[in-house]
């Protein structure tokens, strides 16, 4: 009956023995992550080859000519010349940052607002309905957005009725508006869904804290500011750090569906570019090089975000 009590100093073996339950509970998953997530990274070797798929994969892999940093050189050259890779990278980061700036806070505000609604039924219904667009595929959603924004559509009707414009606007043909349209559509579609995790966090706030705040004479806004927000701040921080890692991969479906050839300079993102000029052209090595670049940038960004969070004294992931 020796205790599994933590914080006991000892040799490595002793520690391992003491933590045998914890090890047993985690080692299988350690194996899993090695096999399914890190073993395939051997394929990154393709980024330094001119890989062509000829029958057997391993044979193709081991017989492919080694070209060193050629593909990365191509990417760098394109970047310097402000070519398509550069544009794709720029668009990806721009849309991600816009989404981070606006799409991250809206679900939090929405969750706080829902929490303030006293009519239980209304609260439930609102929540259920608000997450519906998450389940509508982008194909269907893009069709609706296109109708809304067409020259004969309701948005133009509204603008004309309000006298904000006298000429009908072709929203989807204007590349200056694309990032904005993208951000608004994404917020609309994911608002309710993204609020779920914050709602769950809010439910865990100790009711006692509200009561003592009330005794101190705090109003509703003050309670939100001094009780609710600090309590869910760790969750917010953790999600923010993880989201920062995704800045460079903003997905591709919605950009492909709502973008068109006229707005390509603003709408083509890295994932679309990789799909089109990587695997779409059977250029597996080139595609791998882009994937590798993205992975490295993501990991670096997460680490930076994490370090910053640590420095400011908030929760961090690592």
């Amino acid at each position: 009956m020796q205790g599994t009590r933590p914080r006991k100093k000892g040799t490595l073996l002793e520690t391992l023995y003491r933590q045998r339950f914890l090890l047993a509970m985690s080692l299988p998953f350690f194996l899993w992550v090695l096999l399914f997530c890190y073993l395939p990274l051997a394929g990154w070797g393709m980024a330094f080859q001119d890989f062509k798929l000829r029958g057997d994969v391993l044979e193709s892999f081991f017989s492919a000519p080694f070209v060193g940093l050629k593909h990365f050189g191509d990417l760098w050259e394109d970047f310097v010349n402000q070519g398509r890779f550069f544009l794709a990278l720029r668009n990806t980061l721009a849309m991600s940052l816009l989404l981070l700036a606006f799409g991250f806070v809206t679900p939090i505000i929405f969750a706080l607002m829902l929490n303030e609604i006293r009519i239980k039924k209304f609260k439930r219904i609102t929540q259920t309905i608000s997450y519906l667009p998450h389940f509508i595929s982008w194909v269907v959603a893009a069709g609706m957005i296109s109708v809304m924004l067409s020259t004969e559509g309701p948005v133009n009707d509204l603008l004309i009725a309000l006298g904000l414009t006298d000429k009908r606007i072709t929203f989807l043909a204007d590349q200056n508006m694309f990032w904005g349209i993208m951000t608004v559509s994404e917020i609309w579609k994911e608002l309710g869904w993204n609020a779920i995790i914050f709602l769950a966090a809010i439910t865990s706030v100790d009711q006692g804290l509200y009561e003592s705040a009330e005794i101190d004479g705090a109003g509703r806004l003050r309670k939100i500011w001094y009780v609710t927000l600090p309590c869910i701040l760790p969750v917010i921080t953790v999600i923010l750090i993880m989201d920062i890692g995704w800045l460079i991969s903003v997905g591709f479906e919605k950009q492909m569906l709502l973008g068109n050839d006229m707005t390509r300079n603003a709408s083509e993102v890295l994932d679309v570019y990789a799909l089109k000029y990587g695997i779409g052209q059977s250029r597996y090595s080139f595609g791998t090089a882009i994937g590798m670049f993205k992975s490295v940038v993501s990991v670096v960004m997460v680490l930076i975000a994490n370090a910053l969070a640590k420095k400011t004294g908030e929760t961090s992931i690592l």
């Binding site: 992550v33 990274l41 595609g287």
Partner: peptide, 10 residues
């Protein structure tokens, strides 16, 4: 694992 992309074939 959230961020590393090993590619389709591997």
């Amino acid at each position: 694992t959230m961020y590393v992309d090993s590619g389709l074939i591997p």
